[in-house]
Design a protein around this nucleic acid. Structure first.
Lengths: 130, 130
DNA sequence: CTGGTTGCAAACTCTTTGCAATCCT
DNA sequence: AGGATTGCAAAGAGTTTGCAACCAG
C-alpha cells in the first residue's frame, strides 16, 4: 500500500480518499476485478472516480489490464511478474498460470511483441469429476 | 458458401438475403472482423440483422468469436482448425499463428479446458525497423 | 399461406467527459 | 490559497430486444 502511495506522490498526484480506497480494494482482491467489482467494493466513491483512478493507475504502471475468457476487462495490481490465468467455470475460481509462450512466438514471428494475452477457462480437477 | 447454407437449412433456418450477405463478407475477410466492420460491408442490411445473424452463426458453429489485444470482439468463419493471431500495431496487419500451448496447460493444471485465447500484438519485422 | 426473419426504434449496459464544488498539499 | 480531484449528471458507444411488416419455403 505504502509503496503505491509513494509512486503517486513521486509523479505529482495527490493521495486522496478514492485513490486509497481503490488501492485497498485491489490489494484485497485475490483475482482480477472488473471495474464494477471494484466500484461495488468502494462504498461512497462515485463510479467516475473509480474509473478515473483505475485509468490513472494504469498510466502509472500500478495496475495492468487483463482480458479473460468471459470477455470482461479486468484489472490487477502489478505486484508480481506478468502471468496468465485459468478460470474454472464450475466453482468460478481463478488461478495464476506459471507458463508462457511469448519467447517462442517472438522467435517464430520475429515481431517486436509489446502486448499479449493468454487466458484459459474450463473445469478444474475438482469440478470436472462432479 | 454453399456448405454453410446447407448447415442453415439442415438446422431449420431460412436462407435469406442478410444471411447470405453476412456470410459472403466473412468469407472475403482476411482477418477477424468486428461487428461494425461486418455491418459496414453489408450494404442495405440493418445492424440488428447483422447482429442476430452473427449470433445465429455462432450458435450453429459456423462462426467463432475472437478477442484480440485491441479488446474488440471479432468474428471469423470456422473454416480451418482453431488458431491464434498476431497483430501489427504499425501497419495493422493480422496474421495467423501456428503455435499453441493448450496441451501444456492441460498437463500442468489438469483442468478440462473448454475455452482459451492467446493473442499477441506488437511491431512486425518490417515496421520495427522503420 | 404462415412462421421465421427483418427493419426500425427504443431500451440497456458500459464507458467517458464537462463542470462546479471540494479536497490535498 | 490554488490547482488537482471529486461527484453529479449527462453524453457516447456498443449491444440487445419488442414488434409490426415482410418474405422464404
Amino acid at each position: 500500500m505504502q509503496k503505491f502511495l509513494e509512486i503517486l506522490k513521486e509523479k505529482g498526484s495527490k493521495v486522496t480518499r478514492p485513490r486509497k480506497k481503490v488501492l485497498s480494494v485491489l490489494l484485497n482482491a485475490n483475482y482480477p476485478f472488473t471495474l464494477s467489482e471494484i466500484y461495488r467494493n468502494c462504498t461512497d466513491i462515485d463510479f467516475a472516480s473509480v474509473y478515473r483512478t483505475v485509468q490513472l493507475f494504469i498510466s502509472m504502471k500500478i495496475v495492468r489490464q487483463i482480458n479473460m475468457c468471459d470477455k470482461k476487462i479486468r484489472y490487477e495490481l502489478i505486484i508480481d511478474k506478468p502471468h496468465h490465468h485459468i478460470q474454472c467455470n464450475g466453482c468460478g475460481k481463478i488461478e495464476k498460470l506459471d507458463i508462457c509462450i511469448l519467447d517462442e512466438v517472438r522467435k517464430l514471428t520475429d515481431y517486436n511483441i509489446t502486448e499479449h494475452m493468454m487466458e484459459f477457462s474450463g473445469l478444474c480437477p475438482d469440478c470436472k469429476i462432479k
